[in-house]
Design a protein around this nucleic acid. Structure first.
Lengths: 394, 394
DNA sequence: CTATGCTCTGCAAGCGCTTACGGGGCTCGA
DNA sequence: TCGAGCCCCGTAAGCGCTTGCAGAGCATAG
């Protein structure tokens, strides 16, 4: 198992007879162990019908030769690539990075590899990158991260029949995991309303036509109805469009500040836009939260540093979950392949025999920090002593 | 090429004769085009010795069937997986995310896929994740991102004979791309010295014994010699250890502040540690830069928001470069395989015939912002008007 | 007109595994 | 003691491509 401190054999292909010995193949192992390649294959993969003694002998031979099965060969023979494609806009963004991290965790445990497909932030080189055909025959499943997807892309995806799962948004027909964007946005907006604000701005994101990406719209709608629910008529001037980036938040804030009647509070659709807004506000001489309250969504790694009130979402968890959803579809597919009769009471199976895609909604939580307060006067916060002098053990 | 608006054929495996038609194979294409599979293979891959007419016919047949070659099959037959493994500690960190982005860019252009291997931040699940054997037979090359690597891991890597390139650090025998850590740290420290500081603290990172990861040490040494060069005897009390994370920077700062004679300036080995330090200092009531100057290394995406003076390094560029270095070794390897004679004057070829690993050093640049100033009085900075009212075109 | 050399294409042998299928040995009940 | 049944294991047929080799067709040179 562990190739740690075993001085004999292992890792370094041991005694290199010859200059650069070619990698050991299954036949070498078979020969060394004195069995057939079929038995080696079965033994190493833990299949039944191999006697303990034989299995050990094979294992030993494999270790000694530093044998590891060729991924291509076993994929070709078995039809299973043990690889999942992850399509993501831009991994430089905290949200995606953390998602991928979670995905990777789950997938690794299940013995799957992660093939990364980043497409431009706004899908610049989309055509080439997200051609499902380029994924097909290379991955067993696909996970798409919060990427605006066109109708035709969805169609193409479905045509490939590759199990697919979505994280951060939903599209009918696919399993997915996400937060309740309406609720999160509602909570955020109502928090500001509850503090007494009435001129509440929104920095959202563009709703690109033709794209299936309901997140910005859901948050926007929730913002609007929260306002209306409180008897506040939304002011279109306070409705700004960003692109989830820091700079777009900053620009939107600049616009808001130049208004004749600027807002006293801002709900940003993401923490990163909130950071940008915060920065712009401060540089304009405004005090947060005295002069302006700001709330975001995410609970970004940097939110504590900006003392930003926000609606937290568990990102890494969503990554883990979406990976598990995908793995579910994978084994479901195998199941179908094996037994084609609808006897076992598989719940939630649609008419076509394919399991109804599950969508998991993970909870969000309002995190109160110092960026929000009633209009005109600061919110009371316990003065935080920095680190309580607790020196880390060196 | 584009599977966009072609109503006939394409994408959806066209006329699905049967319920879920199996994906087209090379023989199907061959049959449709009326040629042999060999010709299909050659035509589709752009090999010479295929007449234009035939090539077109094959291309057309392939398009019509939505054919795409099986990665496993072609890998098995050709021995080329067209995949690069990228080993990274934790993609949630800005530096790594950006590196990967750059790598992905270059690699995609070259037709390679990226298989991601994240290992724990400090290599928790290192054993399993970074077992080169698990990479071998799956990837053609490996890129390692700024990960502390053990001697035995290096040995194991070399034993696999998989071309490997390093980003963010160096280890002999491998091509790599990095910044000049000594220089960067020297510039940072000297900047503080030049401002008149004499009590200059350093927040670095642990030098884990047995690991080949020279970055922290190089920066630390440069810090020390910069001080000595200015006639300042380094005070061990001002020398703190972090782990490149925000919180570790915060903790180190807290320690520094509790000192009898605290520093007037801090050089942090990374921007993220600087952010943490900055935050702690401010929460302790200190004004930056009036009471305390802070400088980092990186020019992190958030550095402008923190108004942090720092030594910038081009991260995405390093990603692109390391990918190109790796591709170089790949073609070099092929070259060697083809012509085994040392006739063409391949410069920089070592005695063993393998090309001397190149290491590229990319330049860094001091970015002056508002977090540094002479001790005791603020540095003069032009007052930045927020965004100059330049409203973005909606 | 024949020899020489191209260019283009097909044949067929793998690449290194996985996986029916079948058969030899053993155990156990009758 | 003998057949049924089970556990193991080997045989061999692929998986879907790539590629060395050779041959067919054709043009050019001699």
């Amino acid at each position: 198992m562990t190739s740690e401190a075993s001085p004999s054999g292992g890792v370094a292909t041991s005694s290199d007879d010859g200059a650069s010995r070619v990698l050991a193949g299954i036949t070498d192992v078979a020969a060394l162990a004195g069995v057939s390649t079929a038995t080696v294959s079965r033994a190493l993969r833990g299949l039944p019908n191999v006697s303990t003694k034989t299995r050990e002998r094979v294992q030993q031979a494999a270790d000694q030769l530093g044998y590891v099965a060729s991924a291509s060969a076993s994929s070709l023979a078995s039809g299973r690539t043990r690889t999942i494609g992850v399509v993501t806009p831009y991994i430089g963004r905290w949200f995606f990075a953390l998602l991928i991290d979670g995905i990777q965790e789950s997938l690794r445990e299940a013995g799957y590899g992660v093939l990364l497909y980043t497409i431009g932030e706004h899908g610049e080189d989309r055509g080439r990158a997200f051609d499902p055909d380029s994924l097909r025959k290379r991955v067993e499943g696909i996970i798409i991260l919060s990427v605006p997807v066109t109708r035709s892309e969805i169609a193409a995806l479905e045509a490939t029949h590759i199990p697919t799962a979505l994280a951060g948004f939903t599209a009918s027909g696919f399993p997915s995991v996400r937060i309740d964007d309406s609720e999160a946005a509602g909570v955020a907006t109502k928090h500001l309303i509850g503090l007494g604000h009435t001129r509440i701005a929104h920095i959202g994101a563009k709703d690109e036509v033709g794209l299936r990406f309901p997140v910005p719209q859901a948050r926007h709608q929730a913002y609007l109805s929260a306002l209306r629910g409180a008897g506040i008529e939304p002011d279109p001037e306070l409705d700004r469009i960003g692109d989830f980036s820091i700079t777009s938040g900053a620009e939107a804030m600049a616009e808001l500040l130049s208004l004749a009647d600027p807002p006293t509070a801002v709900f940003a659709g993401s923490d990163e836009m909130a950071f940008g807004a915060l920065d712009t506000a401060r540089k304009a001489g405004l005090h947060v939260p005295e002069d302006l309250s700001i709330i975001g969504i995410d609970d970004h790694e940097f939110a504590p540093l900006f003392d930003l009130t926000t609606v937290a979402q568990p990102v890494r968890l969503q990554g883990r979950l979406v990976a598990e959803l995908l793995l579910e579809s994978l084994i479901a597919r195998d199941q179908v392949a094996q037994v084609a009769d609808p006897d076992s009471d598989t719940d939630g199976v649609a008419a076509n025999g394919r399991p109804q895609p599950r969508t998991i909604v993970v909870p969000t939580k309002l995190i109160l920090r110092g960026s929000t307060a009633p209009p005109g006067r600061p919110r009371q916060l316990p003065t935080r002593t920095p680190n309580e002098g607790r020196a880390p053990t060196l």
